[in-house]
Amino acid sequence: MKIAIIGANGKAGRVLLEELAGRGHALTAIVRNAARTNHETVLEKDAFALSKDDLSGFDVVINAFGAAPGQEQQHVELGQHLIKQLQGTRTRLLVVGGAGSLYVDPEQTIQLADTPEFPDAYLPTAKNQAKNLEDLQQTTDLHWTFISPAAFFDPDGERTGQYQLAHDVLTLNSAGESYVSYRDYAVAVADEVEHHRHDQQRISIVSK
Rank of each mutant, 00 (worst) to 15 (best):
E72C: 08
V76K: 10
Q162D: 09
L86T: 03
G7L: 03
Q200E: 07
H195L: 12
D46T: 11
F153A: 09
S56D: 07
L93D: 03
N173W: 00
K127H: 14
F146Y: 15
H167Q: 10
D105R: 01
H81P: 04
V187D: 07
A47M: 07
L172H: 01
L136F: 12
T28I: 01
N173P: 02
D191W: 11
Q87C: 07
G66I: 06
G157E: 05
Q87R: 13
S148R: 02
E40F: 14
V180A: 04
K2Q: 13
G157Q: 02
A126Y: 02
E40K: 15
W144T: 00
G79R: 01
G7V: 01
S178A: 14
Y122V: 13
I83V: 14
Q108W: 08
V60A: 06
D53H: 11
D120H: 14
Q80I: 09
G157A: 11
G157N: 06
H198S: 10
E72H: 06
V60E: 00
D154G: 08
T28K: 00
F118V: 03
Q111G: 05
W144I: 06
I83Y: 01
V42Y: 03
D105F: 05
Q80C: 09
F65Q: 01
H167E: 06
H143V: 09
G24M: 04
L27Q: 02
K11A: 14
V187C: 10
G24E: 03
T125C: 09
G98L: 05
L43F: 11
A113N: 11
G79K: 03
F58M: 03
L102Q: 08
D53T: 12
L43R: 03
